[in-house]
Amino acid sequence: MKISFKINKEERLVDVDGNTPLLWVIRDILHLKGTKFGCGKAACGACTIHVDGKAVRSCSMPIKMVAEKKITTIEGLSDGKLLHPVQEAWKKEVVPQCGYCQPGFIMATAAMLDKIPNPTDEDIDQNIINVCRCGTYYRMRKAIHLAASLMDKDEQ
């Protein structure tokens, strides 16, 4: 079936089986590789993107569900040349190791900060539930607090 949606501010139209997971459309049809395949069952969060501003695990969302919606992937998170404050914070804290899970965490964090601009440690524990095998959680927590303060500054 033909499905149209907006991805990273661009209008796109694809013609695929409506049950195809959004992840594979993003990775293999639109060739945006920043969104990762981890588990295929929405269990790890490596494929986290935004659909209408909300964090979604794209491996388990059929493409037909996003018709006429707005999708943002890691490639479209920052506005133009500057990094998004979450990416800026990640850079400052030197968070990534292998790096594979990081786009998913960055997207999950950006969505959380939209909802909870100044998260407590408990908010972070409850909302950031992706899996990182290298164990970068300790630096991520610092980066999330830093991102919150950077965004706070941006608004002032």
Binding site: T35, E75, L83, Q87, K91, P96, G99, Q102, I106
Partner: peptide
């Protein structure tokens, strides 16, 4: 020194 692969890994570059 900051990692040389830092930027690639936070912008989702196709490196894997």
């Amino acid at each position: 020194i900051a990692r040389v692969d830092l930027e690639d890994k936070i912008v989702g570059a196709p490196i894997f």
